[in-house]
Design a protein around this nucleic acid. Structure first.
Lengths: 336, 336
DNA sequence: CTGAAAGCGCTAACAT
DNA sequence: ATGTTAGCGCTTTCAG
């Protein structure tokens, strides 16, 4: 049998209330009995049940993290930083990889509700919007990382995507590129729309007209990135540079270039977003728009825990500045 | 207020016992009242509390996963497959990245105990050994993935590391290499010892003497791999091939080679273990010993859930055959 | 087929 | 400084 608070109480010759108090450091108990009880708890290897304690109204000390895919390094890194900060604060993370599939999202959210998690951090796209607005009612705090959903009442931390894209494209136009393609993600995402807007702004400043067919939509995988790049490069007037909305896509572009026997950066410049471990590892290493993943992870967890602890007040929305890390995948265009 | 089983009971004009029965599909209730109750639960958006239900002796439907580092693609992929299978079976995963730090391991295990998780899957090294043998007493089932710990009474799934290393090294000796280095991990790990043994076996068959200084120990990171490679290549009699015990290390080797202006595979052959996404992405793509991560993940979860459900009987230990994926990082040695 | 009641392990007033 | 007691939301005999 698991040892309970009763076992401790009996062994110590006190009431369970007293034991509860030393466990939680509440009320006043003589340091004498405190010590004795502490000792007995150790001897009996007693672990207070957070299940029971949660039932009495205290928190479960677990928070849910919804991401598209743990196997995507960007999200794995986010998860890691969130997990670390949570652990420091005494909270555990339950992972929910949704594949951006609304069925799975709904399923996970239901589960998280049933488990009475203290809060939920969301890094997925739009489809959850409906589910989420509901969540507010159950008053379980929500926080958004990396993507923001304006219609949702929640704290958020994300990168300034407009600026990020602007920096990337300006770097390219500065090098002389005038035919720059985008491999974007779902247009429903604020992230995507902002990046496209930054792209247009940079083009405009360089006096370059915006063309629809240089912007292609793709889901996030190496394979998809490769396909899109193949299509772009196969067109009548192929781009001299491609900006991919994440590292996986960019890796796909690199593979497409290899297949087409195009050399990067000489025949084609490439810039990625995210700057995960992948960006530094491919050949050539990618110029990439870096977002401070660690910082975002810690910060969102901090904000969420504040809410869990009852912090009221307006929702906060942080927008972090991205940084363009210049590596070897970009140079001036060969043919002007 | 959260809606409880009482609210449903009242609204339906029945007792909570009846509601409980329709929730769990136990006992016998007229399909009439069943429907009515179901309907009301939906209307009120009722979510039964697994916290409360767990307190009455049922499971928490959550299992803990201990890994060294979620940001390492190998473990991220393991986590993903485990999570998926868990989700199919109705279990959630709480992530514990331990950095192979025994303090963290102990901390996480304590937390998992307090949360009354139904089971724990472990992919970390040795330091937990002590903690774990204890766990058995609290009768929370354990399962080991990717690494086995003989002294622990637990189901396990892992790769046949001896064979994996043998295949890698035999491939190399077959190409004519006679000076093959190993960048290994912690010697305490069964995995490491078995790989070294496979290495020696392959050398022996090729009539090559084993030398201690060709085997170097490293912790798992790109940076560490690079350092070890630099040291190896800087020795009097540098190896013509290096086998790295995971992709991160191998990437480090590749970077070291670049820094030394050595071309892979012509100046140096490289083989990695794990065959994660990284192996296919670096330049050149790495010949790698692939283990069936997906399959391991599913299988370990299946075995663990069996135990959670009360399956008794001897512990099962599965050892899966690895496969050598030949890419472009290996060829015959240039100078014989 | 349905309900009453006794817990599960712990917390939080409220007494003492 | 410590103990009593009434829940928390649900499951599970055991009656009816």
């Amino acid at each position: 049998m698991k040892t309970t608070i009763y076992d401790i109480a009996k062994a110590a010759g006190v009431s369970i209330a007293t034991v509860s108090k030393v466990i939680n450091g509440t009320g006043r108990i003589s340091s004498d009995t405190r010590e004795r009880i502490t000792e007995i708890m150790q001897e009996l290897d007693y672990q207070p049940s957070v299940v029971a304690s949660a039932l009495t109204g205290k928190s479960t000390f677990t928070i849910g993290l919804l991401i598209p895919d743990l196997a995507n390094p960007f999200f794995a890194e986010i998860a890691r930083s969130v997990e670390d900060r949570g652990h420091e604060l005494g909270f555990n993370l339950v992972m929910c990889s949704t594949d951006n599939n609304s069925k799975k999202e709904a399923g996970y959210i239901t589960l998280l509700r049933q488990k009475r998690v203290d809060g939920i951090i969301i890094a997925t796209g739009t489809s959850v919007e409906g589910l989420l607005s509901g969540l507010a009612d159950y008053n379980i705090p929500l926080a958004l990382i990396s993507r923001d959903i304006p219609s949702i009442e929640a704290d958020s931390v994300r990168a300034d995507d407009d600026t990020g894209a602007y920096q990337a494209v300006a770097h390219l136009t500065g090098l002389g590129h005038r035919h720059i393609a985008l491999i974007a993600e779902d247009m429903e995402l604020l992230t995507t729309r902002e990046r496209v807007s930054g792209y247009r702004r940079a083009l405009e400043e360089a006096g370059i007209a915006y063309t629809d067919d240089l912007v292609t939509i793709s889901n996030s995988s190496v394979e998809a990135g490769k396909q899109r790049a193949l299509e772009l490069m196969g067109s009548d007037h192929p781009p001299t540079a491609i900006v991919a909305f994440n590292d996986l896509l960019a890796v796909g572009v690199v593979q497409a270039a290899k297949e087409l026997r195009l050399s990067i950066p000489w025949d084609l410049s490439v810039i990625s977003f995210d700057n995960t471990v992948l960006a530094g590892i491919v050949d050539p290493p990618l110029t990439s728009v870096a977002v401070p993943i660690q910082q975002m992870g810690r910060q969102i967890m901090d904000m969420l825990i504040e809410r869990v602890r009852g912090e009221k007040g307006d929702k906060q929305r942080f927008v972090l500045k991205p940084e363009l890390i210049i590596r070897q995948s970009t140079t001036f265009p060969s043919k002007v």
